[in-house]
């Protein structure tokens, strides 16, 4: 035991760690293993054919494409919003800052129906876009809009604390050495926030890939066109195709875990970067 844990005068380690592991196993780990064990019952060709069927491939393309686009837009505007919130004073700033977390707090089904209402042909925004020939609701563009909404807080909330920590002295030194404001941003500020920006981007992307509630209302769910991967799992479940649903779920789990690993690496690197400066 002494090699596993360093000595401490505080009691309760065994109880606390034991309960933590038991709870995690019962609620999270054993249920998650069910997906992999059920998938293992399929033969390899069965599995491969299920997860590479044309309709499934089309759903990957939409899910990943829209998630990537949404995370990119969020990276750009998230950095901008974080910058404005940290650097510029304006009336109502605290209110705006609190509102950033709305997508975390608002249930996804609520987000889904209100976004749909706004972007349909007679909605607040849809009525202006429709005459221009731009349709958002019930198209892949709708998926992108919903995923942008969902991912918005991730970039702002990872970049904001880093921007707050940047030492003004560095910027002053750059200015004294003749750098323009843009050069200072490009060479001093941007490299400092880049690890946080990458983490925020990855978090928004990871969240978008698994998102279901906010997307299904606005997507229209047309097979091969606007059907996301999580919806396919539900569709297969409703047809009692448990094997098919599980196979696709396993693919999603593997992708999520890979992303999680990647995000942990990014955060580890960001921490190292911060302690070095």
């Amino acid at each position: 035991m002494s090699t596993f844990k360093q000595h401490s005068v505080l009691p309760g380690f065994n109880l606390a760690l034991g309960f933590t592991l038991l709870y995690l196993s019962l609620i999270v780990l054993i249920p998650l293993s069910a997906a992999f064990i059920h998938t293992a019952k399929l033969s390899w060709p069965e599995f491969w054919n299920t997860v590479t069927a044309p309709r499934v491939i089309a759903s990957y393309r939409l899910t990943f494409g829209a998630s990537l686009a949404a995370a990119t837009v969020n990276a750009f505007f998230g950095l901008l919003v974080a910058w404005v919130l940290v650097r510029y004073p304006f009336p109502g700033k605290r209110l705006v800052d609190a509102l950033i977390d709305l997508p975390f707090a608002l249930p996804t089904s609520v987000a889904g129906i209100t976004l749909t209402a706004i972007y349909t042909g007679n909605g607040w925004i849809g009525q202006y876009l429709e005459p221009m020939g731009i349709r958002i609701a019930f198209t892949p563009a709708g998926v992108f809009v919903a995923l942008t909404f969902i991912g918005l807080p991730f970039v702002v909330r990872t970049v904001q604390p880093v921007l707050e920590e940047i030492e003004q002295e560095l910027e002053e030194a750059a200015a004294m050495l003749g750098a323009t404001r843009w050069q200072t941003f490009r060479h001093i500020i941007f490299p400092a926030v880049l690890p946080a920006l990458a983490t925020g981007f990855a978090l928004a992307f990871a969240r978008a890939i698994g998102e279901y509630g906010s997307v299904i209302f606005i997507a229209g769910n047309i097979p091969m066109i606007s059907e996301i991967t999580p919806l396919l799992i539900i569709t297969k479940l409703e047809q009692y195709d448990y094997a098919g649903a599980t196979a696709i779920a396993t693919v999603m789990l593997v992708i999520s875990f890979t992303l999680l690993l990647f995000i942990n690496l990014l955060q580890w690197q960001a921490r190292r970067h911060n302690t070095k400066v």
């Binding site: 596993f4 844990k5 360093q6 401490s8 505080l10 380690f13 760690l17 933590t20 592991l21 995690l24 999270v28 780990l29 249920p31 998650l32 069910a34 997906a35 059920h38 996804t108 990871a206 890939i209 698994g210 998102e211 279901y212 509630g213 999580p230 919806l231 799992i233 539900i234 479940l237 448990y242 649903a245 599980t246 779920a249 999603m252 789990l253 999520s256 875990f257 992303l259 999680l260 942990n264």
Partner: peptide, 30 residues
């Protein structure tokens, strides 16, 4: 406390955040 595997444990606690809600429902059905 300081013990081996702590950072793995922290990642495991965060695991539910990276699982799609639909997959969460599915594993309980399974």
């Amino acid at each position: 406390f300081e013990f081996y595997g702590k950072s793995i444990l922290i990642s495991l606690i965060d695991l539910p955040f990276s699982v799609s809600p639909v997959v969460t429902g599915l594993i309980y059905v399974l």
